[in-house]
Amino acid sequence: MIALLLRDLRLATRAGGGFGLGVAFFLILCALVPFGIGPDRAALAPVAPGILWVGALLSCLLSLDRIFALDHEDGSLDLLATSPMPLEGTVAVKALAHWITTGLPLILAAPVFGILLQLPVHAMPMLVLSLLIGTPALSMLGAFGAAVTVGLRRGGLLLSLLVLPLYIPTLIFGAEITRRGAAGMDVATPLVFLAGVTLAVLALIPFAAAAALRVNLR
């Protein structure tokens, strides 16, 4: 499993593409919002938590189809499926690799982009914490979507259509934590809910994703 993780990480960093792209997209998104809304601090600050979370969601979406598509094309996915490692484990490792290459950079970049959007400094810890808890669920749900659409020719668009509604609970609780953090309110309740959603997703979705992969590899 560790070997597979290292291989995926090496592929993601070496092959150019993928790696920094999500963060770059996130930056562009955060830079575009003030053009749309206006540079006014009073207008930007209240929407900043939501924009940051939606931005993180979309940047995460960008690299989802790569989770399985490349391995499916060159046949290594079939090898992984026939290897002694359970397919559920493969899915989990793939999602972890996606999180390390996409989720982690997003989390590190988010406070910087928060400054661009006039998010108050005291809200930063809550922003980082909510992303840290929420993004693993995004990667795992994305892996499920990627597993369902892996064999399709035009899977990319369908992937977003399938995955985005699944992101709604994570988005609601994540943005709520950041908003409450910015307002200086108690964040315990949404934090517990967000952690609950993430843990449930991490525990159950690998089975659904592995089932979908088995169908697609038939």
């Binding site: 509604p165 709604i168 609970p169 609601i172 609780f173």
Partner: peptide
């Protein structure tokens, strides 16, 4: 395959539709 995959999506979707229903209530 279509029947299998849509079946899995329907299962996962049901859980999340229900989850969203209560998450939205919180929001």
């Amino acid at each position: 395959s279509a029947a299998d995959l849509t079946g899995v999506v329907c299962l996962v979707g049901s859980v999340f539709a229900l989850l969203s229903r209560y998450a939205v209530l919180f929001w």
